[in-house]
Design a protein around this nucleic acid. Structure first.
Lengths: 322, 322
DNA sequence: ACCCAGAATGTAGGAAACTTACACACTTTG
DNA sequence: CAAAGTGTGTAAGTTTCCTACATTCTGGGT
């Protein structure tokens, strides 16, 4: 069943699927809409003409906020009702509601790029700082609440008992998080390698055997290359762990799912706060795995640390940082 | 002279007093509205009936955003045109425009308040969790307290004006943070590359010229390879920024020093929490650099982000990596 | 005290934006 | 190759908002 008949849609007021994104209990009022994401999410369900509308909106959000139904329709080369239907399809009450939400979603972007760098004040006020730190904290809190310790323990067990581990992450943040995971775990004497090239990922995946493990990292959970590589690994009976957003494609092909939903101010321009959350998850599983490995890991760690220190002309004791 | 005759107002299209808040020439489009303040500011100039409207709006912003002209009029016990006039009086084009800006102001307000901070969850978790999260939070707080915005701004200026940028980070965390920095900044269309091989670092450093920039990342601030490479870069008159611990060797060879001292619980198993701090610093400088670069960066970023959502198979809008 | 300018506000008609209902065109399938 | 069904546009509502004008109120001058 693809989608309900359009007639039905027009008749029924609007079931309001209620974006599952932000189902937080203590949400302030409106759970701060992320229309742009909603558009992207429902893009697959849209009909051709509606997609043209989506393209127009995504291509020039600023225009769409001010434009009227008719103007958008003209630019997308569709009829006005199609625009209305588009708005409904992505979960709004109508064009007005849509434009309102769209207007709200561009605010965050303005904040980041309203050229004069608003309050440069050294004091406290700058909303920029508030947002960066606030979201980082929220991300941590989200992990704390949403990631069940039992899953972390499961992940640690898989890590501790794996013959070898492959970490997959594609694109900016995920790639560096994958690298970070590798760096954390190899210190325990684990055979681990991170990959951020789709081809290499697939090649690696097809070499895996039972007892091997894949850790997949994706902020969106929809990166098809990663999903395919993981599915491939699974086909060869390797175990799979994902660190991603909940209820996404990626979670479906993984044994252990470490997921967080980060309530975030939606803005494409802004660095995503999920990196903080994922970093925390990586810490959790590596610490847990470290303890799980017990003595051998400790010994390895000690040796690594010793050599690092020695190499540094043995100045002082340091955390295993760099 | 109190205010112009209302007839005049209705005749003249709208002089648009142009909010003096953000009078930047090359502001993207709209200067991010703060209607609530505008209402309060112009309250004195309002006519009695309009003030009733202002009261109603201020008393229940959420209602006003959704309500129609008529509903607001009824609640304020005035006629619809009065509501329209009120909107004009505070500098909007009309009721529609007013509601749009009001909706945006609500978001802006939330940004300022930031972190309603969800109740920091209980302490019953395992000590492992408490340590990981506790230290991550401490790290963020340390950045907030110790890193002066002025230094961040200086760093952003250097980044924005650099011909090319090299990021140096050696070893586990620093290498992935360097990669992360590269990923964040290249989105602005900056020529940037990260390096985590000592030899390559030195080679790169010796190719630098005045106007180029090095960003050095080190948790300890004592990684000799990095320090030497930075010194080499400095010898060739490149600018240098470091992200590291305060008062270390590395800071001595850098122009802009972004340092934090993270008090850590010494546990060999636990990865250093400074990574959270450094990640936050990277966010800050990249956001600030985005501001500094202004419109061109915005456009580049928009293109990147838009194209990252590829229309693959003409079907789904999916991310090309995260 | 009265009247009159002019400001303040409401009323009503009309314009614009948005929505609904329906019809036509184009697929898909038996 | 028809029949069912889906997708989209046309045209006619409906709501929402705005303009023009009428009315009421206010304050000052005589």
């Amino acid at each position: 069943m693809q989608r309900v008949a359009s007639n039905m849609v027009e008749a029924v007021p609007a079931t309001t699927p209620e974006s599952p994104l932000l189902t937080d209990a203590n949400a302030p009022e409106h759970p701060l809409p992320d229309i742009l994401s909603q558009i992207k999410d429902s893009y697959a369900d849209l009909r051709p003409a509606e997609r043209r509308v989506a393209d127009v909106v995504l291509a020039d959000v600023a225009f769409s906020v001010d434009a009227s139904n008719a103007e958008i329709a003209r630019r997308a080369d569709v009829s006005e009702p199609t625009v209305t239907r588009f708005c409904r399809a992505i979960g709004c009450d109508g064009v007005r509601d849509f434009k309102l939400k769209l207007a709200q979603s561009v605010v965050v972007g303005r904040l980041y790029f309203s050229t004069p760098l608003p309050p440069v004040s050294d004091a406290d006020g700058s909303p920029l700082w508030n947002v960066v730190f606030g979201e980082a904290r929220n991300a941590l809190a989200a992990v704390e609440r949403q990631v069940p310790p039992s899953e972390v323990v499961k992940a640690a067990e898989l890590i501790a008992s794996a013959h070898q581990i492959a970490v997959f992450g594609l694109g900016g943040s995920s790639a560096s998080l994958a690298l970070e995971t590798e760096q954390r775990l190899f210190r325990y004497g684990i055979a681990i390698a991170s990959h951020s090239d789709p081809h290499v990922m697939r090649m690696k995946a097809s070499t895996l055997k039972p007892g091997d493990l894949v850790i997949a990292i994706s902020a969106t959970g929809r990166t098809s290359e990663v999903i395919e590589a993981v599915a491939l690994a699974k086909h060869y009976r390797a175990n799979t762990i994902c660190i991603t957003a909940p209820d996404t494609e990626l979670t479906k092909v993984c044994d252990v799912k470490l997921t967080v939903d980060i309530p975030e101010y939606p803005d494409t321009m802004k660095p995503t706060a999920s990196r903080f959350a994922f970093l925390a998850i990586i810490d959790l599983i590596s610490v847990a795995a470290g303890y799980r490995l017990g003595a051998p890991a400790l010994e390895t760690l000690r040796r690594v640390k010793y050599n690092v220190l020695a190499h540094r002309k043995g100045k002082e004791l340091e955390p295993l940082g760099d």
